[in-house]
Amino acid sequence: MKKNFIQIKKVSKIYKNKFAALKNVDLNIQEGEIFALLGPNGAGKSTLINVLCGITYHSKGDIFIDGIDLTKNRKKIKSLIGLVPQELHLEAFETVFDNVNYSRGLWGKKKDNNYILNLLKKLNLDDKKNNLLMQLSGGMKRRVLIAKALSHNPRILFLDEPSAGVDIELRKEMWDIIYTLKKEGVTIILTTHYIEEAEEIADRVAFINNGEIILVEDKNVLLNKLGNNKLVFTLDNSFKKVPAVLNKYSYKISKNKSCIEFFLSKEKNEVSDILLSIKKSKMDYLDFNIEKRSLESIFVDFIKKEKK
């Protein structure tokens, strides 16, 4: 495992129309990790990926991948990278098999029909291998794009919104594939709008907004630090005040006294204690549920803070 396998140093990207899509981005990615880029629409996720893949040229800063300077040897770097783009752009009248083979050839790899057939099997495409690409559904096209990216055994895989338009089952399968690739030592960088996805598979997470990286953190650290869950009770009109036994917990009552939120600490399992105390003190409530603080809400908080 190489440290700082991908080094991004003060990289800016200014498009022709003077729009700054990336501003002084500093980021290091380790070999073999799964790295998730999170951010709202237009944050600059795709721009960053396209710059790293050598499709778009950055305007300022330096990028090193495996110690190679991107601007000096694009070809070498491109040969390490597989890209699953955000948009489903595929030829219409070619068969799945031929098209995946074509990608392998473009990356200068020798023909290997068995490898491609296995790959198609892994991606549940083997019964479609002789279909024309235009005969596929959106989710299948996404899988073909993944097959194309993997057809040439990349060491780095970029997935730009791999789950867009993909059903839950396939998403799970895709995560499995990503885990397997990680085991094989492939470095994986993905963007996603599904926060659960990042929560599920990423080792580290970066938040990007308005072309700036606003946070890079180990996922577990992040969830621990900020990801406390809440126990929320919906109250009825009879509610007067919180029984004294509950004072040892940190809680908040909403202004109109319609609900009360207990903030749970990650370590202890307080839910049953609280429920028990409430039952003993005969406090009435209509309903309760546990709200998870997801990466999403952490993220929304972050962006709100940024705006202030």
Partner: peptide
């Protein structure tokens, strides 16, 4: 036109 240019751009070809 059909967007598949991305692949030619991403591929290590001169």
């Amino acid at each position: 036109f059909n967007g598949t240019i991305f692949e030619l751009q991403a591929a290590p070809i001169s």
